[in-house]
Every structure is written in C-alpha cells, then in structure tokens.
Design a protein around this nucleic acid. Sequence first.
DNA 1: ATAGGCGCCTGCTGGC
DNA 2: TGCCAGCAGGCGCCTA
Length: 274
Amino acid sequence: MPELPEVETVVRELRGPLVGRRITSVSCGRKPLRVPFARGWSKDLVGRCVHGIERRGKWILVDLEGPMLVVHLGMTGQFTVVPADIPRRPHTHIVFGLDDGTDELRFRDVRRFGSVCLYPDRAAVAARLAAQKLGPEPFDVAPDYWRHAVTRANRCLKAILLDQRVLAGVGNIYADESLFESRLHPATLGVDMKPRHLERLRQAIVAVLEKAITFRGSSIRDYIGGSGKKGGFQKEFRVYGRTGEPCLNCGVPIVVTRMAGRSTHFCPRCQKRP
DNA sequence: ATAGGCGCCTGCTGGC
DNA sequence: TGCCAGCAGGCGCCTA
C-alpha cells in the first residue's frame, strides 16, 4: 500500500505530535510481524526521547537520540499518534506509551507484512539499507546514474520502476501513474530508452510523487496518514484502477495487464513504445 | 541478469 | 443468499 507519498505523509504528520516526546512503555501483540520482535527490545526503548523522524524510500526512521526505530508499513500498515483513551482497533500490534500517558503511538497492520525494528545507531541503519542496495530518492537522481540504471537493464520500465534498488519509494500505483504521465508504454525496455524519454520519465516521476504528497497520498482501502486521516490522491488517478474507463487525454478505455507480477494500467493509445 | 512463481497474511468483492 | 476464487499500496526467496 504505502508508497513514497503515503510514507512521507505519515512522517510529516507524526513529526508534530511525536518529536520531543518520551517513550514510557511498549506493548506488543502476540502475532509476529514480518520481522519478529527482538527479545527484550522494549527495555531498550523505554525512557528514550524522540529526536526526529524521517523517511528513506518507503522506510520510516525514528531517531531516538542514538538508537533508531526503523518501520516499514508493508501493504496495510498504519502508524499513528492517538489519544490513549481511543479504543485500540483489531490488528494493533505495537503500542508505545508517550510521556504523561495521554497519547499513544500505535502500529496497526492487518496483513502483517510490515516490520518494526530497532537499530543501535544511524550507522547500523545505513548499513541495513545499503545491504539491500536501496536506490536514491527520486527527487535527487543524478542524470548519469539515471541513464545508466535504466538503459543497462534489459527489462521493462514497469519492472525497473518497481525495483527499489533503482529508485527508492515508487510502487505499483505511482509506477503506472508516472508511465502514463510520461506517455511511455510500461513494457518499454530500459535499453531502448532514448535521452529524451529518460528525462521525460524522470520528470514525470517527480511531478506525480510531488502532486501525490500535496494530496497526502492515496487511500484505496487501508491507508491513513500519521494523523489518522485518509489521503486524497486516489481521486486524481489517471490510469491506476481505471480499467475500462476513458483515458482522460484521448477517451480510449484504459486497459490492465499483468507485468512484473503486478497489475499494470495504461492507455493503449497515449502510451506508445519509443 | 532477469522473469516468474510462491509465501507471508487478512479482508473484501465479484461471479457463479 | 451463500460460497469461494481471486485480488490487494510490498518484499524476499527460490528456480529456470
């Protein structure tokens, strides 16, 4: 679910209510997340103060003045600060009590594809992200890197955009939306990309992600921001989930196919192969 | 190097 | 009305 714009929204909305506050308690549910809780980890968290919260790709990094909490929302993760007297909904797996006990930081995840891990310091987090070869943020991609990363790949653009080693943060929705925006067919091979196509695609990705952030991300079913409110970009989709509906540019019905293992939506008239 | 399939989970929808 | 296959914003592992 949550891709870069959704994770960015969560981070921005958690910053106000979270930074400067102290963790006073941690309680975990019985069912494990994708990564099981480390034994005794709550002992290392209690008493820590939240110094900052940032995003890297689809990862949330909570700086606890040294140690860092690294959170991934998977498909259905929710990370919110709420008054402690609001009942905990089912599938709430971790609850962090905050200073005087009036508020709680809650991690909820229906499908449990998400993860919450504690790292001893920033260097350990950097090593973890480097180990999985997490690529650059889409907003500051060096032109040489971009050209090389795309044109060296003998695979389709859809697969390239979903690969977190190429760009960090793009997922299924924004891959489809960016490809439509750049008028490129998702099956176009990276090796076939000309300089003008590369630049068009890069700019489209940035534009789509920035617009989605201003709408606070896309809520299809589970996603909510850090404040608990839904996003609004789902109303702005040009192709994603619009199968059979007319292309907003040319009127031809949007089609869906399977590519790189994911549903892939595009306009068969507007998106030609180079 | 890349594609494709599966598994991890739960909930919802559409078709019969 | 009821049941069940299929599908869903992700990712990592395996095989060919």
